[in-house]
């Protein structure tokens, strides 16, 4: 019974605060760097094209913005095929 009530309560809880944090994380990352979801996609495609010219890519490359404190960096993770 208690577990059931806890579950209902938890479901209510995970609502708006989590949503706010999630939205802020994305919007602040874009505000700080002057980027957008679209720009990150464009960057990803172009970076992959450049890499592909020289080496073979294995798997799905990832391009994201990472933060340390108020500093931001572009994190590019491109798995390369071994010989």
């Amino acid at each position: 019974m208690i577990d059931f009530l806890k579950k209902i309560y938890a479901r209510e809880n995970s609502s708006s605060r989590d949503k706010a944090n999630e939205r802020l994380r994305i919007v602040l990352a874009h505000d700080r760097t002057g980027t957008s979801t679209h720009l990150i996609e464009v960057l990803k495609e172009e970076i992959i094209e450049v890499i592909k010219k020289h080496v073979e890519i294995d798997g799905t490359p990832e391009v994201t913005i990472v933060h340390e404190g108020r500093q931001s960096a572009l994190d590019i993770n491109i798995p390369l095929k071994g010989r």
């Binding site: 995970s14 605060r17 944090n21 802020l24």
Partner: peptide
Amino acid sequence: VKSGNMLSIEDLLEHLCI
């Protein structure tokens, strides 16, 4: 904050880092 409907002190410090 307790009921999950407001950003907490920790949330704000995590976002703003000051």
